[in-house]
């Protein structure tokens, strides 16, 4: 079973569908003279926060130790892949929902342009968004509050263009964002795939499976997979999904013109139910 569901789920349900994991007060009473200076957020001390990890890669022992440290840290701030269907349920629970620029993409590709190029794919969730003006650097370009329906359309729009839907927690299990992610500019996918930092991005509750009767071998799905889980089998002329590599994002299911790929529950497969 998913560890997060076990700890934070509502009676065995998926943890991110439990309204408690979105709940925060709006205000806090401050005692006079005891006001605390807020923590300065420097985007994880810059992406440079990861620098030692990467520089240590040629020293296996030190690398492993460092990797464990980061994994521990990301138990409090991490995420999981979710399907479009579940993401739509999430935005029915979460309030408020605010569209903002993707912070990862800003770090890795320095994207921040107006118009078409503007990478406004992230959705900030929860009452903290009412205070976004406190940190104009983090919310560069401002935020735009969306209705539940607008949020659903936003997620669907980018997901169908190939982006993976993920959750970000800020103090697990508090859910602070829904991201639309793309390797390699997404730091979460990258940290999980390239550096093995698991709690930064757990696999989703489903996995993709090809219906060989319907698959025509067009290869569209292969181009879309961000996790390297799909390949064309030359002799059978069918696409093959390695379900142990699949994160269950569902991008391929929407890419397939034949509707030949479907998502099935991870936990119904004994061989995968402990694989997160």
């Amino acid at each position: 079973m998913c560890e997060l569901c076990e700890k934070y789920g509502d009676n065995g349900g998926r943890w991110y569908l439990n309204p408690e994991n979105y709940a925060r007060p709006l205000y806090k009473k401050v005692e006079k003279g005891k006001e605390k200076e807020p923590m300065i957020l420097t985007e994880l001390q810059g992406p440079f926060y990861y620098k030692p990890l990467i520089e240590l890669k040629d020293n296996p022992e030190a690398f492993e130790k460092m990797r464990e440290g980061y994994s521990k840290f990301h138990e409090t701030m991490g995420g999981q892949v979710v399907s479009l269907e579940d993401a739509k349920k999430m935005v029915e629970i979460a309030q408020p929902i605010a569209r903002m620029d993707c912070i990862c993409r800003r770090i890795t590709r320095a994207t921040l342009e107006d118009g078409e190029q503007r990478p406004r794919t992230c959705l900030g969730l929860g009452v903290g968004m009412f205070r976004w003006e406190e940190w104009p650097e983090r919310y560069k370009g401002g935020v735009e509050f969306l209705s539940t329906e607008e949020a659903k359309e936003h997620i669907e729009h980018w997901h169908k263009r190939g982006m993976v839907i993920t959750i970000m927690t800020f103090g697990t299990p508090y859910i602070g964002g829904i991201c639309l992610c793309d390797y390699p500019d997404c730091l979460a996918i990258r940290m999980r795939l390239d550096y093995g930092i698991k709690p930064m991005l757990l696999k989703g509750h489903q996995v993709a499976k090809v219906n060989y009767e319907e698959c025509t071998g067009c290869g569209t799905c292969v181009q879309r997979c961000q996790f390297g889980a799909i390949k064309m089998e030359v002799t059978t002329k069918k696409s093959n999904i390695d379900m142990t590599r699949c994160f269950g994002c569902g991008v391929c299911t929407y890419a397939c013109p034949q509707d030949a790929i479907s998502l099935i529950d991870r936990e119904k497969l004994p061989g995968l139910k402990e694989e997160w």
């Binding site: 309204p19 979105y22 709940a23 925060r24 007060p25 806090k28 009473k29 029915e92």
Partner: peptide, 9 residues
Amino acid sequence: RRLRIVANS
């Protein structure tokens, strides 16, 4: 100093 909010959906 804070009201413990259990859910606010």
